[in-house]
């Protein structure tokens, strides 16, 4: 009788070992896969951040170019500045259509639309330089905030 119970115990151990092994391998594989997935998500977030940064730098250059066209930051646009201003506005519009679909940030999008409008109003003599500069600052602040939010979101995910 004792021999039978011993052999039964031995069988039990023999049966559970492969189960534990398979379970261990499965857990290891699952951990590895989830780690890889997390890494690839983080890599994507980092590359998106880098792209956003590049796009906003481009926006910043276009805004800066527009704001330095008026000589001595004169209140109203002068006839000698209109050609250069139009050229810079054209560049900003190119940047607007190139950057907008990439960044997908509604606050930045709104600020870009408002700056674009303000540049037109300034060009037509409806708004003065201060209004244009204010919209430019608002746009750059929106870009800055967007980057901060992106960074904080990535940090939380990590």
């Amino acid at each position: 009788m004792e021999e039978t119970s011993e052999s039964k115990g031995w069988d039990w151990a023999k049966g559970i070992t492969p189960v534990v092994t398979v379970l261990g391998i499965s857990v290891g594989a699952w951990q590895f896969t989830s780690q890889m997935s997390h890494e690839s998500k983080m890599e994507f977030a980092r590359s998106m951040y880098s792209k956003k940064l590049q796009a906003y730098e481009e926006v910043g250059r276009a805004v800066g170019d527009l704001l330095v066209v008026p000589h001595d930051e004169q209140l109203w646009i002068g006839p000698e500045d209109t050609v250069a201003f139009d050229s810079c506005l054209e560049r900003f519009r190119t940047c607007y259509w190139g950057v907008l679909p990439l960044v997908e940030d509604s606050v930045v999008e709104t600020a870009m639309i408002q700056f674009k409008d303000m540049a037109r109003f300034y060009r037509r003599g409806e708004n003065d330089y201060h209004d244009l500069a204010r919209e430019g600052m608002a746009l750059m602040n929106a870009c800055n905030l967007s980057l901060q939010q992106h960074w904080n979101k990535s940090g939380k995910d990590e």
Partner: peptide, 15 residues
């Protein structure tokens, strides 16, 4: 001048 504020649906504003 009355200028519409962008509503997030379209990039066009109206004056």
């Amino acid at each position: 001048r009355l200028t519409t504020v962008p509503d997030g649906k379209t990039d066009a504003t109206r004056s």
